[in-house]
């Protein structure tokens, strides 16, 4: 009788199975990279890795929150770009640094609120809304920047640049900040009722609403959060690289999207953790770094990213089918069960 009571492993009970798998892959990738390319462990490369990781992680925290409730936001890349530009324009107009910082964040919050309003109040498909907003925002960026040089705004007061360039013990301050933020979010997710209710809402919306969780307002605030975090990443990156141009954040949404899927999120909702977001972002950033170190042409990078996305979506689909109790033979065999098509 004793063998029927099996102790669940820690990873399973903490729901960190896929996250730990991704961490394992990341470690393997890192080891492989350091063997293949000696430049990987170079100080410069490690520093640039940290700079690349920090904004991606900040954006991924917002995206992962949306993934948990079964939504996503494709406008994050454009929001990052436009909030950096908003800060830069505020500085150009002679405003003090804190005001410029807030101007950037407010832009992101506003766009997030628009997304949230459209999705939560009007009930429009979130993909279409955020895609439309992506287009509109990129259009606005083009209009705003049409008179500027290709490099965009470049002269900032040193106090603003310091926002992105401070360091603690040789580590990039931005990177540490993003890590702290990630730990804070993870604690929120695991220790508070609101955090748990996010996963509940994504896993079973009807049941969650029946127990009194307010779906619409949660959705709305999650979109606002995602917009705000994307703006934060955008402003900090603008401060870090010292310029705001039309190219910032282009194609970022897909990278973050893939990172969240790989890190344990599911487009169906009800799954995911912020530790997973960290693992996914590490994976995607290392992959991009590997492309650069091995000097893979950029068009092949798009091919690989697309292939990874297809693979992840297919695996996600298979996992969902498994969860609904279909045997492997029916999923992969030559004669799938037609009734569940």
């Amino acid at each position: 009788m004793t063998d029927t009571i099996r102790k669940t492993s820690f990873l399973r009970s903490a729901r960190l199975e896929q996250e730990s798998l991704t961490f394992g892959v990341v470690l393997l990738l890192a080891v492989a990279l350091s063997v293949v390319s000696p430049a990987f462990l170079d100080g410069n490369n490690l520093a640039s890795l940290q700079t690349a990781l920090a904004p991606n992680l900040i954006v991924a925290l917002g995206m992962m929150t949306l993934f948990m409730i079964g939504r996503f936001d494709l406008s994050v890349g454009a929001v990052m770009g436009i909030s950096g530009i908003a800060s830069a324009m505020a500085l150009e107009a002679g405003m003090p640094v804190p005001v410029a910082f807030l101007a950037g964040i407010a832009t992101g919050l506003l766009i997030g609120a628009f997304n949230g309003l459209m999705v939560a109040r009007l009930g429009i498909n979130h993909l279409i809304v955020t895609l439309g907003v992506l287009y509109m925002t990129r259009g606005v960026i083009e209009v705003v920047m049409s008179g500027e040089k290709l490099a965009g705004f470049t002269s900032f007061p040193p106090a603003f640049n310091l926002l992105g360039q401070w360091e603690v013990g040789g580590l990039s301050g931005l990177f540490l900040f993003a890590l702290l933020l990630c730990i804070g979010f993870e604690a929120f997710l695991r220790l508070t009722f609101r955090g748990r209710s996010l996963l509940f809402l994504g896993g079973n919306p009807q049941a969650a609403e029946a127990t009194g969780i307010r779906r619409r307002s949660t959705e709305f605030w999650c979109f606002v959060l995602s917009g705000g975090l994307a703006a934060l990443a955008g402003v900090l990156m603008t401060a870090r690289v010292g310029m705001a141009n039309r190219y910032m954040g282009e194609g970022l949404e897909m990278q973050i999207f893939i990172a969240c899927l790989i890190g344990g999120g599911s487009i169906a909702g009800g799954k995911g953790s912020y530790a997973g977001a960290l693992a996914g972002v590490l994976f995607v950033t290392l992959l991009t770094n590997a492309f650069n170190l091995l000097s893979v042409p950029s068009e092949w990078q798009a091919v690989v990213i697309g292939a990874v996305l297809v693979l992840v979506v297919v695996v996600d689909g298979i996992m969902v089918l498994r969860k609904s109790g279909r045997p492997w033979s029916s999923i992969l065999g030559p004669f799938p069960n037609r009734l569940s098509a």
């Binding site: 993909l127 897909m254 487009i267 042409p297 950029s298 068009e299 092949w300 990078q301 798009a302 091919v303 690989v304 990213i305 697309g306 292939a307 996305l309 297809v310 979506v313 297919v314 996600d316 689909g317 298979i318 969902v320 089918l321 999923i331 799938p336 569940s340 098509a341």
Partner: peptide
């Protein structure tokens, strides 16, 4: 889409990126 019951929005975003990369090659 048919075999794995995948959301076609997601899948075709992936093929969109992949095929776009090939076209750029």
């Amino acid at each position: 889409v048919v075999r794995f019951n995948i959301n076609s929005l997601m899948l075709t975003i992936g093929t969109m990126l992949l095929v776009r990369g090939l076209a750029n090659v």
